[in-house]
Amino acid sequence: MTVRVDGVDYEFSSLEEAVRFALKMAKSKGAEVQLHNGTFHVE
């Protein structure tokens, strides 16, 4: 599972870890999280 934040990809071994990271980053940026074909994008 890959989480992309500001064009940088972060790899996670589990969906749970990836979701937690994506939500944490989105909250800190006041951004939204989108899921596309198994890849999260924080914008």
Rank of each mutant, 00 (worst) to 15 (best):
M1N: 06
M1H: 13
M1Y: 15
M1P: 07
T2Q: 04
T2L: 09
T2H: 11
T2D: 01
T2P: 01
T2S: 06
T2Y: 12
V3H: 01
V3T: 01
V3Y: 02
V3R: 00
V3P: 00
R4V: 09
R4H: 10
R4K: 07
R4Y: 05
R4N: 06
R4W: 10
V5R: 01
V5S: 02
V5Y: 06
V5E: 00
V5A: 02
V5I: 09
V5K: 01
D6A: 06
D6H: 05
D6L: 05
D6I: 02
D6V: 01
D6T: 02
D6E: 06
G7F: 03
G7P: 00
G7H: 03
G7L: 02
G7I: 02
V8M: 07
V8D: 02
V8A: 04
V8C: 15
D9N: 10
D9E: 09
D9W: 09
D9L: 12
D9P: 05
D9A: 08
D9H: 05
D9Y: 11
D9R: 06
D9C: 15
Y10N: 01
Y10E: 00
Y10G: 00
Y10V: 02
Y10R: 01
Y10A: 00
Y10H: 04
E11S: 12
E11L: 13
E11D: 07
E11R: 14
E11P: 08
E11K: 13
E11Q: 13
F12M: 01
F12N: 00
F12W: 01
F12E: 00
F12T: 00
F12A: 00
F12P: 00
S13F: 09
S13M: 08
S13Q: 08
S13R: 09
S13H: 10
S14H: 03
S14N: 09
S14W: 02
S14R: 04
S14F: 02
S14Y: 02
S14G: 03
L15P: 05
L15W: 13
E16I: 11
E16L: 10
E16T: 07
E16N: 05
E17Y: 02
E17W: 02
E17N: 02
E17P: 00
E17H: 03
A18R: 00
A18H: 00
A18S: 01
A18P: 00
A18F: 03
V19P: 00
V19Q: 06
V19C: 15
V19R: 10
V19G: 01
R20Y: 08
R20G: 04
R20A: 12
R20K: 11
R20V: 07
R20C: 15
R20F: 06
F21P: 03
F21V: 01
F21Y: 04
F21H: 02
F21N: 02
F21L: 02
A22C: 14
A22N: 00
A22S: 01
A22W: 05
A22T: 01
A22F: 08
A22K: 02
A22D: 00
L23M: 10
L23P: 04
L23Y: 13
L23R: 11
L23E: 14
L23N: 13
L23K: 11
L23T: 12
L23V: 12
K24L: 11
K24P: 00
K24H: 12
K24G: 09
K24R: 09
M25A: 06
M25C: 15
M25K: 02
M25I: 10
M25W: 07
M25S: 03
M25E: 05
M25N: 02
M25R: 02
A26K: 04
A26C: 11
A26W: 06
K27E: 13
K27L: 12
K27Q: 12
S28V: 14
S28L: 14
S28Q: 14
S28A: 13
S28P: 02
S28K: 12
S28F: 11
S28H: 11
S28D: 12
K29Y: 11
K29F: 11
K29S: 11
K29L: 14
K29C: 15
K29I: 13
K29E: 08
K29M: 14
G30S: 06
G30N: 09
G30W: 08
G30F: 06
G30M: 07
G30Y: 07
A31G: 11
A31Y: 13
A31M: 14
A31D: 04
A31I: 11
A31L: 12
A31P: 03
E32C: 15
E32N: 13
E32I: 14
E32Q: 12
E32R: 14
E32T: 14
E32V: 14
V33F: 04
V33L: 05
V33A: 05
V33T: 02
V33K: 03
V33N: 03
V33R: 03
V33Y: 02
V33I: 10
V33D: 03
V33E: 03
Q34P: 04
Q34N: 10
Q34E: 08
Q34W: 15
Q34S: 13
L35S: 05
L35N: 04
L35M: 11
L35A: 04
L35P: 03
L35C: 15
H36Y: 07
H36V: 13
H36A: 06
H36N: 09
H36C: 15
N37V: 06
N37K: 08
N37M: 05
N37A: 04
N37C: 15
N37H: 07
N37D: 13
N37W: 04
N37F: 08
G38K: 07
G38N: 07
G38C: 15
G38P: 10
G38W: 07
G38A: 03
G38F: 10
T39I: 15
T39D: 12
T39R: 14
T39W: 12
T39E: 13
T39K: 14
T39C: 15
F40T: 11
F40L: 15
F40P: 10
F40K: 11
H41Y: 15
H41K: 05
H41V: 15
H41P: 13
H41Q: 08
H41T: 07
H41N: 08
H41G: 08
H41W: 14
V42M: 04
V42Y: 06
V42G: 11
V42H: 07
V42A: 06
E43P: 07
E43N: 10
E43H: 10
E43L: 14
E43K: 08
E43V: 15
E43G: 14
